[in-house]
Design a protein around this nucleic acid. Structure first.
Lengths: 136, 136, 136, 136
DNA sequence: GTGGTCTAGACCACA
DNA sequence: GTGGTCTAGACCACT
C-alpha cells in the first residue's frame, strides 16, 4: 500500500534567490496549475491572507495576482476573490505536436548552452511527475 | 568506432527569463568550464562577434567579460582577446540542480499553457532520444 | 493648400472621468499606435518625465508601462527605456475578415444597448480618421 | 409602407471595460429612456431574469435598480416589479458623445491589435450599412 | 541616466 | 469581507 502523498498548495518565498517575490508567487501558481494542484475555478488565497502568510506587503501579492489576471491565468472579481480561470485550449493534435516540437527545440538549444543533456532532463521530469498527487 | 561526444559551445539568451543578459552569459561560461567544454587558455568569442551573434549591445558582453575578469575566471589581453584563466570553477551539484530545475520548470509551464501536460512532454522527449541516440 | 496638422503625442489625464490614471495612459498609447502617431521602435517618455508632466506618482506610470509590457504592446529595457514593440501580425485576409466581422458584430450589439446606431459610428470614425496626421 | 424603426431594448455587459456591471446597467437604462426606447410606466426586466440573461449575480442587478430608485429614475413596487418613473432623464449631448467615443475607441484599439486599421473598419461598416439598409 | 522592486499606509469600490 | 488605485519614498540593477 502506498501513502497517498497529498501535495497541498503552500506558498514559500526564497529571499536569497534574487527572484522577485511577485514572480515567485506567479511561478508557484503556474506550477500548481501545471501539475494539477490547482484547476479551473479554484480560489487563490486572498491577497491579505497570503501577504500575512508570507510576511510580505499585500501590494506585492496584489501585483502578482494582477499580472496573472492580465495574462489570463486567473480571473479576479472585486469583492469576491481571485480564481483560476478556465483555459480555453482548443488546438488540434497536429497543432499541438507542432507547438511541442518547437518548444522542445528551443529548450534543447537552451539546455545545451548550460551543458545539460536530455537524459538528465527526462530523469528530472519523471521524478517530478512521480511526486505528483493522485488527482482526485 | 565510437562517436566522440561533441559538446559544442554555444550561447543563448532568454529575454523573458528576467535574468539579465550579462548574467546569462557568465553562467553559461561557468557551466562550460565546469563540464569541460572550456578549459584553461581557451579563447572566448570576441565581444563584438558575440554581441552580433546574440543581437545585443556589445556593452552587455563587455560587462559580462569584465565581471568574469574581476572574479578571475577569465583573462583579458588588450588587443588579443579574452581567455579562460587557470582558476578552477566549482559549480556545486546544488547549483546545477537549481539551473536545471529552473529551466525545466519554465519549459513545463510554457508547455502547460498550450494544454500539453508533463506526460506528453516526457513521451515526446523519450521518443526523440530513442530515435537519435547518437546526436549530441 | 492644406495645413499639415501635426498631431503630436501629448498625454492628458482626466481626474473626473473615474478611469484610473494608469488606464488612461494605456488607452492613449494604444490610440496613438492605432492612428499612427506611435509606431514600432518609438520610445515612450521615460517613467519619471511623464510622471512630472502629468503631475502624478512615477509608480503609476510604471504600472501603466508594465501592464503594456505584459500585454506585448511595448518592450522595456532596463536602463534604456520603453519602446513600442514590433507587432507581429501574420494573419491571412480571410482570417482578418473573420475577426473583423466578429468584432463588428459584438460592437453593434453593444452600441445597440446604448441606443447608438451605425451612422453615428461611421461619422465619428471618419472624423477621427480625417484628423490624423499625414504619415511621414 | 415604411418599416417602423424598431429600437429594441437589450442589455449587454463588457467585463473588460472596467466599468462595474451595475453601472453599465444603469447607463443602459438611462440611455434607453433618453432616446425613447423606455418611457414612463414601462416595466424593467425582473432582477432575476436579467441576472440570468447577463449571467451575473442578482445582487448586482439589485444594486443597479436600488440606485436608480434612489435617483428617482425607477419605481419599485414590491411583488410587482420595477417601472420607469416620471422623472425626465436628461443625457446631454456631451454625455452621449463621451459614451460613443469610449465605445468606438475601445473598438478601434481592439481591431488595431489584430492589424486592422481604421480605413478597413470604416469600409466594412459602410458596406454593411449599405447592404442592410432597413435592418435596425 | 534608465526601469524594477518593495514597503507602508490611505482611501475607494464591490458583494 | 473582498480587490483596486494611488502616493511617498527607499533601495537596487542595468546602460
Amino acid at each position: 500500500m502506498v501513502m497517498e502523498e497529498q501535495k497541498s498548495l503552500s506558498f514559500t518565498l526564497d529571499p536569497k534567490s534574487g527572484v522577485p517575490y511577485y514572480k515567485q508567487v506567479i511561478l508557484q501558481v503556474e506550477m500548481a496549475i501545471a501539475d494539477g494542484r490547482l484547476t479551473t475555478g479554484d480560489q487563490l488565497p486572498t491577497v491579505r491572507s497570503l501577504a500575512v502568510d508570507l510576511k510580505i506587503n499585500p501590494n506585492t501579492i496584489s501585483r502578482a495576482y494582477r499580472e496573472m489576471e492580465i495574462r489570463g491565468i486567473v480571473n479576479t472579481q472585486q469583492g469576491t476573490g481571485t480564481f483560476i480561470s478556465e483555459k480555453e485550449i482548443e488546438i488540434s493534435a497536429v497543432e499541438r505536436e507542432k507547438i511541442l516540437a518547437s518548444l522542445v527545440r528551443d529548450f534543447v538549444i537552451k539546455a545545451n548552452s548550460y551543458g545539460i543533456d536530455m537524459d538528465q532532463v527526462i530523469d528530472y521530469l519523471q521524478e517530478m511527475r512521480d511526486n505528483e498527487p493522485l488527482k482526485a
